[in-house]
């Protein structure tokens, strides 16, 4: 399974809009949404008849057995995460604040504290015959981890390992989840936005991908919102020898498409035409990198 990963330094650049158009154009049989903090890809995909939901666990969290607890307060004094609270004279654990370090369980003289498995989110695998879509959601207060992103990709690989290629909507930022998104990717398409912060985000993500040895292509979304900065991004790519695959203009139709649960290629519109060209170039580059 070859992996085309779509990335951006920050959310809101139109990554999912482009990913959904690519999925339609490629008639992809395998795709995943690794943006688990705020997954959106499922909103523009047709409903699937089959879904498999698995609990995702982070670190175990502390629980105090009130029948054994003598309220000595050692746990409260030593917890660095302010996760132990005194409520009506009884010490309790705030599961949102608990980070699972296990120190309170170690220190409790009454052995009243145990670590229990804590659900931090759900892995979701949707299938329709030979078409598979993998994604996940997080519980409130939980953050993305490289582990969850790896599991999203692994469950796709398990059912669609033989599929020629998969399109993956990556995680934003430059942290561990992005590294996990990049691991095993054959090409990363970076979606850049022509703004000062957009350019600095793009440079950071390019550096991260380059260190992992993943080949990179860049496209600009909403390119006409600042022509000068778009030109700057393009010349940066030429100078750095990064494959530039095109510009997609701002297009109100893109918003309409999303709201109708469709993709920009389902309409005759400027952004749809542009994304077809970006897709063709990206695919050509993916084929070349695989051949090499």
């Amino acid at each position: 399974m070859k992996q085309l990963l779509i990335l951006s330094g920050k959310g809101g650049t139109g990554k999912t809009t482009i990913a959904s158009a690519f999925i339609r154009l490629a008639q992809a049989k395998a795709y995943a949404d690794c943006d688990v903090d705020a997954p959106n890809l499922h909103l523009v995909m047709a409903p699937f008849p089959n879904e498999k939901i698995t609990d995702y666990h982070g670190l175990d969290k502390a629980v105090i057995d009130s029948s054994r607890c003598t309220n000595c307060g050692i746990c409260l004094d030593n917890c660095r995460f302010h996760a132990i609270k005194l409520q009506d004279g009884q010490h309790i654990v705030d599961p949102i604040a608990c980070e699972g370090c296990t120190l309170c369980a170690f220190l409790c003289p009454e052995k009243a504290i145990t670590m229990v498995q804590a659900k931090a989110g759900e892995l979701k695998l949707y299938s329709n015959k030979d078409e598979h879509f993998s994604t996940a959601t997080l519980s409130m207060g939980s953050g993305t981890t490289g582990l969850l992103v790896t599991q999203v990709k692994n469950q796709l690989k398990e059912v669609a390992g033989e599929t020629e290629f998969a399109i993956i909507d990556g995680s934003p930022g430059i942290g561990c989840p992005v590294i996990a998104s990049l691991t095993g990717a054959d090409l990363a398409l970076v979606v850049a936005e022509p703004s000062i912060s957009g350019i600095s985000d793009m440079k950071r993500i390019i550096l991260t991908a380059a260190k992992l040895g993943v080949p990179i292509a860049v496209c600009i979304n909403k390119s006409d919102t600042n022509d000068e900065l778009s030109a700057k991004i393009e010349s940066f790519c030429w100078k750095e020898g990064i494959f530039f695959v095109g510009k997609i203009p701002f297009d109100p139709m893109a918003i309409q498409a999303v709201n109708e649960g469709k993709t920009i290629i389902d309409y005759a519109c400027d952004s749809g035409t542009a994304v077809r060209q970006v897709y063709a170039k990206t695919l050509q580059m993916l084929k070349e990198t695989i051949r090499r």
Binding site: G11, G12, T16, D37, A38, N40, L43, V44, I96, A97, L138, M140, G141, S142, G143, T144, I255, V258, N259, G261
Partner: peptide, 29 residues
């Protein structure tokens, strides 16, 4: 952004929250 522990900590002292949203299905979600 998001709904992680960073957000919980940031709004701890807030008297009132303003949620900002874009006019799309993504924005609504």
């Amino acid at each position: 952004p998001g709904s992680s522990c960073l957000v919980t900590e940031s709004v701890r002292l807030a008297d009132f929250c303003i949620l900002i949203a874009e006019p799309t299905t993504f924005g609504a979600h």
